[in-house]
Design a protein around this nucleic acid. Structure first.
Length: 501
DNA sequence: CGCTTTTGACCCGCGC
DNA sequence: GCGCGGGTCAAAAGCG
């Protein structure tokens, strides 16, 4: 398994913002090109007669939604020309009946068509040139990163590694691992699904396996994997977010299976399990913060064993990655605890208060605190606040990757129960690489994570008054903060709609 | 009618 | 062994 083969899945960590940032990234490199294209099109319109220009306008609108991709570019240009050709053809038919000057007009149009064809050719060459330049730069960047990493290999101390953002192979591998944690390589899908299914059945009594202790009933050969599995399943990711909505939108389908009063909190804790696939082991708990009931605490546990919609990929990526990070940072050893504390410090160094790791029993937990607004900034609102979490975790994991040991074999071994790939096409594979670069670039921005958290907080807080608008699509019944009673184990709570995924 | 929520009961681990 | 608390089960109820 060479490093080049590993690269593609690396970026799956940032499924949502990747798309956005990829655009941004591409825009940086192709901004001039796009601008040039538009200018050129304008020029074409300028050279065309007014009728043609008017006819071309709707065509150019086809690709006018946001930053245009290369595909849009090609198609757009082609349509442009085709429209012109058709225009000429139609005109000639009509003109045959009307005027003897039609031939003159037709000849004019054909000349125009030839000119536009050559223009189109020239634009395509420019596009290819820009694409090649970009790929070359990207390769160069990767080379530099690897060189830097090899330089850093000499110094073994954590401090040294902390001081320098040595990435290269280490980071790549970490990203790969994380990618596997959520969405394994495309090529593995076909062989993976059956394995995942077998895993589910093997976990026997379909009955949402759950019962962690029961995992220990397998063959001795898999004892290590079992331990890893159990640890991963126990590892939890807790997200604190300020929201009046009953539940954080994460794109998954959940079914409530229980509710209890937790000690020390007047608000009940609701238990949900993922219902997007039978036997999916993922659970989550939703509870209001005792101190501040406007804060919603959502705790995720486990990894999905089924495909997820993009919206759900975000949170799934976050939780899965965090679980894996905990796995490497909270092994049952003194070193594990130390490592966890170390991780806590390395998580989001620019906003250390946002993420904490608790290695204490019973379960290692990463807590993402999105309730603090260190640096209010304006960000484009994503479809789901959860969509941004992987970005934050990307930062955390990026940093963590410099310190933690990597369980490559484990990661590979556990691909079987991980999610299928988010990305399958070659073009998107290229985007993956761009995404990693983008994530790395963003991770180096000291204000990025903090600003992002502020944006998330504002988004979630802003969704309160009309959360039916923002969260109705994915919302699930959850905790009601107002009508809690504290007698006995269970409380009656109001319910709401189901996810519409 | 099928799915989800509710909710009392049950199981399990842990501390004493 | 017992009590406590967290977590889950499953029958009943609710809902569209």
């Amino acid at each position: 398994m060479d490093s080049s083969a590993r690269s593609p899945p690396t970026c799956i960590q940032f499924p949502v913002n990747l798309n956005r940032t990829t655009h941004d990234h591409a825009d940086h490199d192709h901004h001039n090109l796009i601008d040039d294209r538009r200018k050129i099109i304008d020029e074409m319109d300028f050279f065309s007669d007014k009728k043609e220009a008017r006819r071309c306008e709707p065509t150019s609108d086809d690709g006018a939604d946001g930053p245009s991709s290369f595909l849009d570019f090609n198609v757009n240009t082609g349509l442009h020309l085709l429209t012109a050709a058709n225009t000429g053809s139609d005109q000639s038919v009509a003109d045959d009946r009307i005027s003897s000057n039609a031939n003159n007009k037709r000849g004019k149009t054909e000349t125009e068509l030839q000119r536009m064809n050559s223009e189109n050719q020239r634009l395509k060459e420019m596009l290819n040139q820009a694409t090649n330049d970009y790929k070359g730069l990207q390769r160069h960047l990767m080379t530099l990163m690897q060189e830097q990493q090899s330089d850093n290999n000499g110094g073994g101390s954590a401090q040294e590694r902390r001081a320098c953002n040595g990435n290269g192979k280490v980071v790549s591998r970490q990203f790969m691992d994380l990618g596997l944690a959520v969405a394994p390589d495309t090529d593995d899908v076909s062989s993976e699904r059956p394995m995942a299914d077998k895993e589910i059945r093997g976990g026997e009594d379909l009955g949402p396996d759950n019962k962690i202790p029961k995992l220990n009933n397998r063959s001795p050969d898999t004892s290590v994997d079992q331990a890893t599995e159990a640890t991963i399943r126990k590892a939890r990711v807790s997200v604190r977010a300020r929201s009046e909505a009953p539940m954080m939108t994460d794109g998954c389908q959940w079914r409530k299976y229980g509710q209890k009063m937790a000690k020390g909190n007047p608000c009940p804790r609701a238990y949900y399990r993922c219902t997007m696939a039978a036997g999916c082991p993922v659970r989550k708990q939703v509870q209001r913060c005792a101190d501040d009931r406007s804060v919603l605490i959502t705790t995720y546990e486990g990894n999905h064993n089924h495909p997820l919609p993009p919206a759900a990929m975000a949170m799934a990526s976050t939780t899965s990655s965090a679980a894996r990070m905990l796995l490497s940072g909270s092994m049952p050893s003194a070193d594990g605890l130390m490592n966890s504390n170390f991780l806590a410090r390395t998580l989001l160094p620019c906003s250390s208060s946002m993420a904490t790791i608790s290695a204490s029993a019973p379960f290692p937990t990463v807590t993402l605190d999105l309730t603090q607004s260190p640096n209010p900034l304006q960000f484009p609102k994503p479809n789901s606040p959860a969509a941004l979490l992987p970005q934050i975790f990307g930062q955390a994991l990026y940093n963590h990757s410099k310190f933690s040991g990597l369980q490559v074999s484990q990661e590979i071994d556990q691909t079987a129960q991980q999610l299928p790939p988010l990305i399958s096409s070659t073009k998107q594979g290229v985007q993956n690489q761009l995404n990693v670069d983008t994530a790395n670039t963003l991770a180096t921005d000291p204000n990025f994570a903090a600003a992002l958290a502020a944006a998330i907080t504002s988004i979630m807080g802003g969704s309160c008054p009309n959360n039916s608008n923002n969260s109705s699509s994915n919302n699930i019944s959850g905790v009601n903060t107002s009508n809690n009673n504290s007698n006995g184990n269970n409380n009656k709570l109001s319910s709401s709609g189901y996810p519409v995924n």
